[in-house]
Deep mutational scan, measured.
Amino acid sequence: KRPVSAMFIFSEEKRRQLQEERPELSESELTRLLARMWNDLSEKKKAKYKAREAALKAQSER
């Protein structure tokens, strides 16, 4: 099983909040919005998710 990506971790963290704030969005619209949010995120903020990705990857390799 492959470890999850930093973007996937970000998306899972933000998805529920966005669904509550924007219930009119379809699943595909929500996914596009999350992708745009990820792309607009600064490298400094992405680092938090990339660190979690690395930790999960290291854990799965044990």
Results as ranks from 00 to 15, higher is better:
residue 1 K to L: 12
residue 1 K to Y: 08
residue 1 K to V: 07
residue 3 P to R: 09
residue 3 P to A: 07
residue 3 P to Y: 10
residue 3 P to G: 09
residue 4 V to H: 05
residue 5 S to K: 12
residue 6 A to K: 02
residue 6 A to C: 04
residue 6 A to P: 03
residue 7 M to C: 11
residue 7 M to Q: 15
residue 8 F to N: 15
residue 8 F to A: 09
residue 9 I to Y: 05
residue 9 I to G: 02
residue 9 I to H: 01
residue 9 I to F: 08
residue 9 I to M: 11
residue 9 I to L: 13
residue 10 F to K: 00
residue 10 F to T: 01
residue 11 S to C: 08
residue 11 S to K: 13
residue 11 S to Q: 13
residue 11 S to A: 10
residue 11 S to D: 03
residue 12 E to M: 09
residue 12 E to T: 10
residue 12 E to A: 09
residue 12 E to D: 09
residue 12 E to H: 05
residue 13 E to A: 04
residue 13 E to H: 04
residue 13 E to K: 08
residue 13 E to T: 06
residue 14 K to R: 13
residue 15 R to P: 00
residue 15 R to S: 07
residue 15 R to Q: 03
residue 15 R to N: 02
residue 15 R to Y: 03
residue 15 R to I: 04
residue 16 R to V: 12
residue 16 R to I: 08
residue 17 Q to Y: 06
residue 17 Q to G: 12
residue 17 Q to C: 04
residue 17 Q to W: 08
residue 17 Q to K: 09
residue 17 Q to A: 10
residue 18 L to D: 00
residue 19 Q to R: 14
residue 19 Q to H: 08
residue 19 Q to G: 10
residue 20 E to N: 06
residue 21 E to V: 08
residue 21 E to S: 13
residue 21 E to L: 09
residue 21 E to C: 10
residue 22 R to C: 10
residue 23 P to I: 05
residue 23 P to V: 03
residue 23 P to W: 01
residue 23 P to T: 04
residue 24 E to P: 02
residue 25 L to E: 01
residue 26 S to G: 08
residue 26 S to W: 00
residue 26 S to D: 06
residue 26 S to M: 11
residue 26 S to I: 03
residue 27 E to A: 07
residue 27 E to Q: 07
residue 27 E to Y: 08
residue 29 E to T: 06
residue 29 E to Y: 02
residue 30 L to A: 10
residue 30 L to W: 05
residue 31 T to C: 07
residue 31 T to Y: 02
residue 31 T to S: 13
residue 31 T to M: 07
residue 31 T to D: 14
residue 32 R to M: 08
residue 32 R to I: 14
residue 32 R to N: 06
residue 33 L to E: 15
residue 33 L to F: 04
residue 33 L to T: 08
residue 33 L to Y: 08
residue 33 L to A: 07
residue 34 L to F: 03
residue 34 L to P: 00
residue 34 L to K: 00
residue 35 A to K: 06
residue 35 A to E: 14
residue 35 A to R: 14
residue 35 A to L: 11
residue 36 R to Y: 06
residue 36 R to P: 01
residue 36 R to S: 14
residue 37 M to V: 02
residue 37 M to Q: 04
residue 38 W to I: 00
residue 38 W to M: 00
residue 38 W to V: 00
residue 38 W to P: 01
residue 38 W to K: 00
residue 38 W to F: 06
residue 39 N to E: 12
residue 39 N to A: 12
residue 39 N to C: 07
residue 39 N to W: 04
residue 39 N to V: 06
residue 40 D to I: 00
residue 41 L to R: 01
residue 41 L to T: 03
residue 41 L to P: 00
residue 43 E to D: 02
residue 43 E to T: 00
residue 45 K to Q: 15
residue 46 K to H: 01
residue 46 K to N: 00
residue 46 K to C: 01
residue 46 K to S: 01
residue 46 K to D: 00
residue 47 A to D: 03
residue 47 A to L: 11
residue 48 K to N: 15
residue 48 K to C: 10
residue 48 K to M: 13
residue 50 K to L: 13
residue 50 K to D: 05
residue 51 A to F: 10
residue 52 R to Y: 02
residue 52 R to F: 04
residue 52 R to H: 08
residue 52 R to E: 13
residue 52 R to V: 07
residue 53 E to F: 05
residue 54 A to L: 11
residue 54 A to P: 03
residue 54 A to R: 13
residue 55 A to M: 12
residue 55 A to K: 11
residue 56 L to D: 10
residue 56 L to F: 10
residue 56 L to G: 10
residue 56 L to R: 08
residue 57 K to H: 12
residue 58 A to G: 14
residue 58 A to F: 13
residue 59 Q to Y: 03
residue 59 Q to D: 14
residue 60 S to A: 13
residue 60 S to T: 12
residue 60 S to P: 14
residue 60 S to G: 15
residue 60 S to I: 11
residue 60 S to N: 11
residue 61 E to G: 10
residue 61 E to W: 07
residue 62 R to Y: 15
residue 62 R to V: 15
